[in-house]
Computed example of a mutant assay.
Amino acid sequence: MPPLLQLNVVSSELDALIRLLDDSDPHVTTSVQRRLIEYRWRAVPHLQAVLAASPPDSPRAVNAQACLRAIRTNALATLLDRILDACAEGSDIPLEESLTLLSIFGCPDGDPGAIGHHLDTLWLDVERALQAAPTRSEVQKLLALNTVVFDRAQFRGAGNDYHTPHRIYLAPVLQHRQGIPITLSCIYMLIAARAGIELWGIGMPLHFVVYSPALEVYIDPFNAGTFISREECCQFIEQAGFRFSESMLMRRSNVEILQRVIRNAIYAHTKSQQQWEAETLQETLETIERLTKQP
């Protein structure tokens, strides 16, 4: 079936399912909800349209909300499964997949495959920039990465709307190119990994940067990829009111990075008065902490 025709068929079925959301037969509505949930992100715009057009306490809106929340929590359930598998294998979780699943919860209306495609596109731009470089040294790789991410794509730190959900989740940060330090650092590391650049996530108090073990330099993606020294990191920590300890500049595992992103998301949803989202993420965070707790 041609892609355009397939899209039309999907859209037609979704429209038909939406019309049955408030059917008087509970068996019908249960089947409809199950089918809508199976459509995942494709069903989300249709469900959101129902919520925007219907009274909040109407059966139509209640059923649409239940579907939407199920789609979102299913992504978190898959995330917990991945963490459980990693714990059983004694390995770390894949950062990109984990952040993508978290992004589905936060921003369920987009194709999750677009995240990987967007990162691939940026990586190919880095490769093209490297073709013009005199060498493929580690310095040249990082300079090419900075040129693409900050000069051409113009990723930058969030401003006045720093503590809002769309500055935290991967999908909207890739789309709008503004984010908080940890999300920008994750994007930077994911592109770097595609280019064969080893970088570590460093979770300082009140800030997040990355570290190049090859060059022994810290990089601040929130501030346009500025190279910073260990001494400057220590100075930042002390000026922020913390007593420096070596643990503040330790490499963070992917699961630790994920936990920190979730904490930021909880704060953002709470600040935005989105209590269901904040409470659901808090429960997820507590489950992750139990799963990854060292015996």
Rank of each mutant, 00 (worst) to 15 (best):
His176Val: 06
Arg243His: 13
Cys233Gly: 06
Glu89Lys: 06
Tyr218Leu: 04
Gln259Leu: 04
Thr147Gly: 01
Asn63Tyr: 09
Thr73Ala: 03
Gln273Glu: 14
Ile182Val: 07
Gly157Trp: 06
Gln275Met: 09
Ile197Lys: 09
Ala224Thr: 07
Leu5Lys: 10
Leu206Tyr: 11
Val217Tyr: 07
Leu84Ser: 15
Arg156Phe: 04
Cys67Lys: 08
Gly113Cys: 08
Phe155Cys: 04
Pro172Gly: 15
Arg243Thr: 08
Arg167Gln: 12
Cys87His: 14
Asn63His: 15
Ala132Asp: 09
Asp120Met: 02
Val44Tyr: 13
Leu215Val: 00
Ser11Thr: 03
Asp111Tyr: 13
Gly113Ala: 10
Phe150Gly: 04
Asp57Met: 11
Gly90Phe: 10
Gln274Trp: 02
Phe105Thr: 01
Phe150Met: 06
Ser272Ile: 00
Leu174Trp: 05
Ile237Cys: 04
Lys141Val: 13
Arg136Gln: 15
Leu76Phe: 02
Met204Ser: 00
Ala278Ser: 15
Val28Gly: 04
Ala61Ile: 02
His269Thr: 08
Gln239Leu: 11
Asp25Ala: 05
Pro165Glu: 07
Ser11Asn: 11
Gln235Val: 00
Ala61Glu: 07
Ala70Ser: 13
Thr183Gly: 05
His27Met: 03
Cys67Leu: 14
Ser31His: 13
His117Gly: 00
Cys107Lys: 04
Ser103Arg: 10
Phe236Ser: 07
Arg243Lys: 13
Tyr39Met: 14
Ala240Met: 07
Leu76Gln: 03
His176Gly: 08
Cys67Arg: 11
Ala240Leu: 00
Gly157Tyr: 14
Leu145Pro: 15
Met1Cys: 03
Gly116Thr: 04
Leu14Trp: 06
Pro59Ala: 08
